[in-house]
Design a protein around this nucleic acid. Sequence first.
RNA 1: AGGGGGCCUGAGGCAGCCGCGUGUUCGCCCAUGCAAAUGAGCGGGCGCGAGGAAAGUCCGGGCUCCACGAAACAAGGGUGGCGGGUAACGCCCGCCGGCGCUCCUUCGGGGGCGCAAGGGAAAGUGCCACAGAGAGCAAACCGCCGAUGGCUUCCCCGAAAGGGGCGCACAGGCAAGGGUGAAAGGGUGCGGUAAGAGCGCACCGGGGCGCUGGCAACAGGGUUCGCAUGGCAAACCCCACCCGGAGCAAGGCCGAAUAGGGGCCGCGCGCCUGCCUUUCGGGCAGGUAGGGGUGUUUCGCCCUGAGCGGCCCGGGUUGGCUGCUAGAGCGCGCAGAGCAAUCUGCCGCCCAGAUGAAUGGCUGCUACCCCGGAGCCGGUCCGCAAGGAUACCGACCGGGGAUACAGAACCCGGCUUAUGAUGGCCCCCUGAUA
Length: 133
Amino acid sequence: MVAPVIPVVISVLTKRADFLSANAGTRNARAGFVLLTRPNGGKGIRFGITVTKKIGNAVVRNRMKRRFRELLRAALPTQGLPDHDHVLIGRAGGVERDFALMAEELTKALDRAREGKGDPAGGRRPRKGNRKR
RNA sequence: AGGGGGCCUGAGGCAGCCGCGUGUUCGCCCAUGCAAAUGAGCGGGCGCGAGGAAAGUCCGGGCUCCACGAAACAAGGGUGGCGGGUAACGCCCGCCGGCGCUCCUUCGGGGGCGCAAGGGAAAGUGCCACAGAGAGCAAACCGCCGAUGGCUUCCCCGAAAGGGGCGCACAGGCAAGGGUGAAAGGGUGCGGUAAGAGCGCACCGGGGCGCUGGCAACAGGGUUCGCAUGGCAAACCCCACCCGGAGCAAGGCCGAAUAGGGGCCGCGCGCCUGCCUUUCGGGCAGGUAGGGGUGUUUCGCCCUGAGCGGCCCGGGUUGGCUGCUAGAGCGCGCAGAGCAAUCUGCCGCCCAGAUGAAUGGCUGCUACCCCGGAGCCGGUCCGCAAGGAUACCGACCGGGGAUACAGAACCCGGCUUAUGAUGGCCCCCUGAUA
C-alpha cells in the first residue's frame, strides 16, 4: 500500500459522462460562474470546467478556463469537498471580473455546498421567453 | 508645417513569488524480475513553449488509405494575353495590349499614377429590358431638302400657247442636326450637293497581304481596300491546357468488462401427443425424462428442457498508444546571378507538440499618449556681470488614459478577411521660403 505524502490528490475530469452526472449535483450560482458539486464515491477531489461558445470566441473561453483553474488550484486543497466532483460553468459576467472578488465568491459557494445547500430545489424555473412576442 | 492616401516594419520589454505542458538529466520510491532491465509515480536542475494572421477553409502540394494494367476517349469540374519564378497553383515578378485620372505637348504624341476573370462573336444558337420612329439582312418621330416630277387664287413677259419668278410640301430625296438609349452601321475638317451621304480628298481609326524588330504577347513601317457586316461568351457553346476519390475523426497498434458470431474438443441430443411438409427425413407447439439453482438428503419450489462446459479465432462499441513533428525548415548572416519574383554556394541555428486541450494569478519598474506642476538641471530668452525669466523643447515630479484582431490541433506554399499604438519610406493637396 502506498503511503501518499500529500493526502489531497486533485485530478481533472476528462469524460463527458462525468460532466453530465455532475449536472444532477448541488448547484450554486454566482455572478461569474455556477458551481456544481456532487459526491463521486471515493475518487478524491476532482474538478472540471465548462465554458460554452455563448461566452465568446476561443481566446475569451481559454482565458476564462485558465483563470478558473487558478481559482480552483488555490481553493480546492484547503476548501474543497473531499471525494466530490467540482464543476465550474462559466457565465458571461465572469469574463473580466476581478480575480480577488471571484475568489471570495468561490469560497462562499464552497461553504454553502459543504452545508449541502444549493440554489432553490429543482433548479429549473419555468422557462421564460418562449412566448410569442 | 497641416490634411489625406499607399506600402513595409511591428505585435511591448525586464524582474520577483506561486503555478502549467513538454524534452532531457539526477535523486527517491513502487510494481514485475534471480539479475540485467522495463514500466508507473513524486521531487530537483537545465532547455523549449502560439500567430501574422494560428482565423475563413477559398486554391496548390507533401503524407496516408481506397480504387485502378498502360494510354486514350467520354462525363464532370477548373484555368484563360506573353515570358519568367516555383514542388505546384487560380499565387508571385516582369512585360504587352486595353480603360480611367492627371500633367506636358511642336496636337502627331509623350510622361506619371491607378484599375481590370485580358482566348474565340464572318462555326452555330440565344438575348439586348426600359426608353425610343427604329436594336440587327437597320429605321425615319421632329427635322433638312424638295434639284426631279406635281400643284398654284399671286407677280412678271407674252395677243395666245407657253415661259420665268415667288410659293406649296403632294410624290419623292436625305440622314447632317435634335431627341431616346449602355449601344443608333467609324471620327474630325474641307470640298461637294437641292439637302445630304466615304460621294470625293487630307489626317486619325479599321480590315486584308507582305516586310522589319522581338523568345513571345505585340510593336513599327509599307501596300491595298472607302470600309454595314454592333454588344453580351460572368447565357449556351467552340478552342487550348490541367484534374482519380477521400481525408490525421487519414492510417497503424494494444488491451478487453458485457452482449452476440464462427471453429475445435468432451458429455448430451431420449420418450409421448398434436399439427405442417412431396420422400429418406425435417420443422413447430405442449408434456415428460434429463440438466441447473435453492437445500445436508428425501419431498417441495423455481429456471431450463436441447443443449452444457472448456479452448481458440476474427469483427463492433468505449478507452489508450502511435501517426506527431528536423522541415519544399529558420537567419535585418555573408557572397554571387537576376530589373524583379526568386535561385545558387558557404556559415550559423533547432524554433510548441497539447488532446475537457499546456502561457495563468498577484506585484513592481519601464515603454506610448494626454493634462498639470516646479524653476533644482540642460537648451532658450533678458542682462556687461552677479543674477533673473519659464512662452517653447528635453530631462524631472504628480495625476489620468490607451494597450487591437485574435489561440497551434498532421505539416508546408499562397489567397482572402480582421487589426490599437509605435517607427520607416513614398505619393497627392494646401501653406511657407529659414
